[in-house]
Design a protein around this nucleic acid. Sequence first.
DNA 1: CCACTGACGAGTG
DNA 2: GCACTCGCCAGTG
Length: 107
Amino acid sequence: MIMAVPNSYQLIYATVLQIPRGRVATYGQVAVLAGLPRQARLVGYAMHALPERSSVPWHRVVNAQGRISPRGSADDACRTQRQRLEREGVRFTARSVIDLQRYQWQP
DNA sequence: CCACTGACGAGTG
DNA sequence: GCACTCGCCAGTG
């Protein structure tokens, strides 16, 4: 049964799909680029709804502080995200922070 | 319909 | 830098 997939999700996914390898975007940034300003939360919701193995590079989306947003009790998902990013050349500081000045995607 | 939660963010003290 | 508040909005009970 179709669960009435919100159209906004498609806009969000289409935007995330544009983030190039080795770069990251923030939730708020994705929201704006998708034409949904101030709906960063919805972006997080959309990411949450994605299957782990998706064609959408969800791992390139981080929060405004350049950190990987913690999920309630799924630390392994966070590690997966970090691994994927590091494999693309994104460096983390000792405090697990990404230097947005350097890695944030600028369309 | 109401209350609460959540991969968020900006503002304030 | 930390703790809180408020704005946003879909999902859930």
